[in-house]
Design a protein around this nucleic acid. Structure first.
Lengths: 107, 107
DNA sequence: GCAAAGCGCAACTCATTAGTTGCGGACTAC
DNA sequence: GTAGTCCGCAACTAATGAGTTGCGCTTTGC
């Protein structure tokens, strides 16, 4: 993944609201911006902005169905973030070295 | 780790300059703010601010030696970030599920 | 056909943050 | 002891980002 891509992923995960959105989508279900807004202390448009940031990081995919837009998690970029952490952490500690080897095996 | 702690870690990693600093420290060596600034396109005070953010996230430790301050990486919080990614990603894909089991084994 | 639901776009405010300059204090070397 | 080196603190600017309101478009249901 490009450096700019990793940057977008980490920036996307830096916001607690966006992490909550990612957690809500982790089960594989699809959800609309309005439904998310019902569970969050911000407006639908606020949620829409966060979803746009997650889309830029390619962490969510959007699908228009009738009058609603369903968002789905794409966890693939998470692996890139995990690999960055593993690479950096491997030199610091052997625990994260095991993590790195695991990710390398799957590459 | 606390939710606020994870937030600080992800926020710390969200900046490309800070990631470069973390990478520079990954080998285990200690480094001063001035030395880092020599390799970065920003001033020493700019670097100092980034190091302060990394300290807040407990990703670096500072030690004053004479007139210089040596910074050292503490990779432990990286594992918390990796665990968040693994937990979320595990429900999305089995690859990241393996990552989660690895981290759980080490807990 | 019409009301309501759901969305997207645009403009705006407010807070945060990356980066700068300027300065003064502490340590080192000669 | 003086010059040079390193650092920390403070004030400032500029840019980014989170969140809001307002509005108009499309789709659904009756």
């Amino acid at each position: 993944m490009t450096a700019a891509g990793i940057d977008r992923v980490f920036k996307a995960l830096a916001d607690p609201t966006r992490r909550r959105v990612v957690e809500a989508l982790a089960g594989g279900s699809t959800v609309t911006a309005s439904a998310l807004a019902a569970d969050l202390p911000i407006t639908r448009q606020g949620v829409a902005k966060h979803l746009a940031a997650l889309r830029r990081a390619e962490l969510v995919q959007a699908e228009r169905v009738g009058r609603e837009t369903r968002y789905r998690l794409d966890g693939a970029p998470l692996e890139d973030a995990a690999r960055w952490i593993a690479t950096v952490g491997a030199e610091w500690d052997e625990r994260l070295g095991a993590l790195e080897r695991l990710l390398d095996r799957r590459r």
